[in-house]
Each structure stands twice: as C-alpha cells, then as structure tokens.
C-alpha cells in the first residue's frame, strides 16, 4: 500500500472511503451477451471506481466489482447498449461518505 498522496493507486484511494458492503447482493448486473459485442466498453473507461473490468480470461466479458461502487451512475449514462442494470443498493448499504 502506498501512502504517497500523489502516486497512490485507486485501490489505496478507495480504501479511505467508507462502505457498508452488501457483498452477497449485487446491485449491478451486466448482460455479457451484449457486452461481448460492445466496442470501446466505455463503462471500463469511465467508472471512477474500477467497478467494471475486462475479464482476464476473456476480455470481451465484463466483470463487475459492485463493492467498489461509489453510486455516481456514470455507467448507466455511458453504456451505449443498455446492458448495465443498476438498482440502488439496499437501504443504508453501499458507499457511506463521512465528508462528502
């Protein structure tokens, strides 16, 4: 883990943000049949929290780490194929800003 303010990784940054994780209840689903045909996969590019990553075994498939989600909603806006099914996490779950 890096403590250097200027070079810390995204994982180091997310570690500073408080969450109430709901690991067993993903609030995001993608339809990988659709994602496989997506050029550019803008969700991967735009998500500020690296929730969307190409599957290392098959880059056409998207892996979703919903526990990282900051609930900004950018993925919903940016998905060109309506593949992202995004619901609010259950009450009081998910990101919980202490400063905001």
């Amino acid at each position: 883990m890096s403590d250097d303010l200027l070079t810390m990784t995204l994982q180091d940054k997310l570690y500073r943000t408080k969450y109430e994780p709901d690991t067993d209840h993903p609030h995001i689903e993608v339809d990988n049949a659709i994602c496989a045909g997506c050029v550019g996969q803008p969700c991967v590019l735009l998500c500020p929290a690296e929730v969307y990553k190409p599957n290392p075994n098959d880059a056409k498939q998207i892996m979703v780490s919903h526990d990282n989600c900051l609930e900004c909603g950018t993925c919903i806006q940016v998905c060109p194929h309506d593949s992202v099914k995004w619901a609010f996490p259950d009450g009081a779950m998910g990101v919980k800003y202490r400063f905001g």
Binding site: L5, M8, D12, T17, F99, G100
Partner: peptide, 17 residues
C-alpha cells in the same frame, strides 16, 4: 497543484454526477 496539498493525507475519495 501538488504544492497546495503536500504533506496531506487522503481521507476520502468520492465520485458523483
């Protein structure tokens, strides 16, 4: 920019639309 924040500690990372 980095001179304004040097020596500081990140306490929260956030995103919003």
């Amino acid at each position: 920019v980095s001179k304004y924040i040097r020596g500081g500690e990140l306490v929260e990372y956030s995103a919003h639309m």
